[in-house]
């Protein structure tokens, strides 16, 4: 039973991060109509941003975190304005390829600057496990979960309650109608990209102590986050968190009860199975398509 709970906690904490990445996919999918294949690379950018701020510049974490997030926002904005904004009215195919191009660009730019070697990152919350009853819990796990859920709740409040959030949802629903209602669609697009970059980057920062910081981190985490987003339903914000956490738990149990080599394949297996049997995901609505 203890082992079960232990794996569950581990899975939830990892899943919360997947959820954070997944929600970035969902936000952009809703606003823009295609998957952003560069979303995973924003996770990697986040990891390198905190590496620069904390390890290279030697800033304390409380200052390093906001700086790294601002870096992510700036990069997300630059990407949006240079690569995605010119394609705002282009067809889906061109936009999809553009996101792939951006992903290749970011990944390899970081590789050229930092090299392909993995960088270790010091633990943020300490490595000593806290004993709760019989369970040993690493503080990082708790913080991942808390921050992950906190950000998603904040995001949904932001989307439901604020003026910008409402206009973002309107833009996502019908871009033309939103434009006619006097909503600044371009500005909203930028904000959407900045928020999803920041969320992806945040997940990258939290992952740093668990994984090594490496340019291909984005591909790995991007695929996990994407599998989570698809499992939850690619159009649903809360769905992506549920999908991410489900994936995290599945992976954790796969690693715990079978072997760690099973873990790597689970995301892809989930991806295939969802694509085939449950294309709308757990919470997504079935899309009706028009010619």
């Amino acid at each position: 039973m203890n082992f079960f709970l232990q794996q569950l906690i581990q899975g939830i904490s990892m899943g919360a991060l997947y959820g954070l990445i997944a929600i970035g996919y969902v936000l952009i999918y809703n606003a823009w109509g295609v998957l952003n294949f560069a979303q995973g690379d924003m996770v990697m950018i986040g990891a390198f941003a905190i590496l620069i701020a904390h390890v290279y510049m030697g800033l304390p974490l409380l200052i390093a975190f906001p700086i790294a997030i601002i870096m992510c926002c700036i990069i997300g904005f630059l990407v949006e304005i240079s690569a995605f904004r010119p394609l705002i009215d282009a067809n889906n195919t061109r936009r999809l390829i553009a996101t792939i191009g951006v992903g290749i660009f970011l990944r390899n730019l970081v590789r050229v600057i930092f090299g392909a070697d993995p960088y270790p990152f010091p633990s943020i919350f300490g490595n000593t496990a806290v004993n709760i009853g019989e369970l040993k819990i690493i503080p990082q796990n708790i913080w991942n979960t808390v921050i992950g859920f906190g950000l998603v709740i904040l995001l949904s409040i932001f989307l439901k309650q604020t003026h910008i959030g409402k206009s973002m949802r309107a833009t996502a629903q019908d871009r033309e109608a939103a434009r006619l209602m006097g909503i600044n669609v371009k500005k909203n697009m930028s904000i959407t990209f900045i928020i999803s970059s920041a969320l992806g980057g945040f997940a990258g920062m939290l992952i740093c102590p668990v994984f090594f910081v490496i340019p291909t981190l984005g591909t790995l985490m991007g695929n996990k986050g994407f599998a989570g987003a698809l499992l939850g339903g690619i159009t649903s914000n809360p769905g992506s968190m549920i999908g991410g956490i489900s994936l995290g738990i599945l992976e954790s149990f796969g690693a715990g009860y079978f072997s760690s080599s099973v873990q790597a394949g689970i995301a892809y297996a989930v991806l295939f199975l969802v694509l085939i049997f449950l294309p709308a995901g757990l919470l997504g609505k079935k899309e009706s398509r028009k010619v």
Partner: peptide, 21 residues
């Protein structure tokens, strides 16, 4: 250019998609 090759590929994909589909 070494590893910059793939950086240029990425940028070229985006540029061509935007300016010369």
């Amino acid at each position: 250019l070494g590893n910059i090759r793939l950086v240029i590929y990425g940028a070229a994909i985006v540029a061509i998609i935007i300016f010369a589909p």
